[in-house]
Amino acid sequence: MKLRRSLFALIIAFPLLYLTGAVFSSAVGAASALMLVAGVCVFLLWPEKKTK
């Protein structure tokens, strides 16, 4: 489930990164898109909760 959510987030991030970075060159937009990817990375790095 963690991986599927991350994959969906990256699929959403792709057009955002492209539009803000390559098409409109918007620094604020690009930073937001990068924050989304950073969030995915932190989500992946976060330790799994150990079930008791």
Binding site: L10, A13, F14, L17, Y18, G21, A27, A30, A33, L34
Partner: peptide, 18 residues
């Protein structure tokens, strides 16, 4: 490297990954 370049580079990476 500014956010625009980093976003563009990351998008290129996803283009290649695709």
């Amino acid at each position: 490297a500014g956010p625009v370049l980093l976003a563009s580079a990351s998008a290129k990476g996803l283009s290649l990954a695709l």
